[in-house]
């Protein structure tokens, strides 16, 4: 269980402190797929950095299975928008990075790496360098690398934001399958409402200035989702509802921006 308890984060900017997040309460049961959407200024990336432990909160805390998060660790795997794969390592050695840090027999490590490569469809590219891969393939490497460490929670920070639409849909199906196969909890931040509704069992909408939870909506769609689910009336209704919320906060944020 991942819990965010009255979580807040203030940054110091020129001209005084800026509240990125305030009073965020959220709990994610094990194995759930939760998507967080929000307009710019809603602090959604900050939220993930806090859960990852890369940034310390100024108020409240993040708890994983009851224990407070004090720093980054392999129990909370993170995937950035640009993947951040190691360019000098081959695909295989990228996926092996976290395992190389553990006292694990070579054969066991190789076996695990091979499974995650197969799961993400990278077996054929295992000896390739990141520069030889497409954007979608690089994101697969980042996902496989995070999952190989068996995280309790997989944190995705707009992981498909830089991909073309067709690749993005392939990746959406891939992440759903990987989620079902591994049973890991997923907390994904995105600005793409369609993506959030399609992927999530729950969609959390963040309000802006400061970022806080505006709505926490269950997604009533079948567990097995094909891309055609994006045309179901339930899907369209949910999508419209979330879009309206996000748009409202986006406009408010725009009006508040100093010139």
């Amino acid at each position: 269980m991942l819990e965010l308890a009255s979580l807040g984060k203030e940054f110091t900017r020129r001209g005084g402190p800026v509240k990125a997040l305030e009073g965020v309460d959220l709990s994610v049961p094990d194995g759930q797929f939760v998507c967080v959407v929000g307009a710019s200024g809603s602090g959604k990336s900050t939220l993930l950095s806090l859960v990852a432990g890369l940034v310390r909160p100024t108020a409240g805390e993040v708890r994983l299975d009851g224990r407070p998060v004090t720093g980054p660790g392999p129990d909370r795997g993170l995937v950035f928008q640009e993947g951040a794969v190691y360019p000098w390592r081959t695909v295989e050695r990228n996926v092996a990075f976290g395992l190389e840090l553990l006292p694990l027999p070579r054969a066991e490590r190789d076996r695990r790496v091979a499974w995650y490569l197969a799961e993400t469809g990278l077996t054929a590219y295992r000896h390739a360098l990141p520069k030889q891969l497409s954007g979608g393939q690089r994101q697969r490497v980042a996902i496989a690398r995070a999952l190989a460490c068996e995280p309790a929670v997989l944190l995705l920070d707009e992981p498909f934001g830089a991909l073309d639409v067709q690749t993005k849909e392939d990746m959406q199906l891939l992440i759903r399958r990987v989620w079902q196969d591994t049973g890991t909890t997923v907390l994904m931040v995105t600005h793409d409402v369609e993506e959030a509704v399609f992927l999530g069992q729950r969609v959390v909408v963040l309000a802006s200035d400061p970022g806080r939870v505006a709505a926490d909506l269950p997604v009533n769609l079948p567990a097995e989702r094909e891309l055609s689910a994006k045309r179901l009336p339930d899907f369209l209704a949910m999508r419209a509802r979330v879009e309206d919320l996000v748009r409202t906060y986006h406009r408010r944020h725009q009006e508040k921006q100093p010139i």
Binding site: G71, P74, R76, L78, A84
Partner: peptide, 21 residues
């Protein structure tokens, strides 16, 4: 890139390992 360093910490690397690896 800072993202490479951050991601290494989330993969379980310690400070010395981030420097070396």
């Amino acid at each position: 890139p800072l993202s490479l360093i951050d991601v290494s910490y989330t993969l379980g690397a310690r400070r010395g390992e981030v420097l070396r690896k």
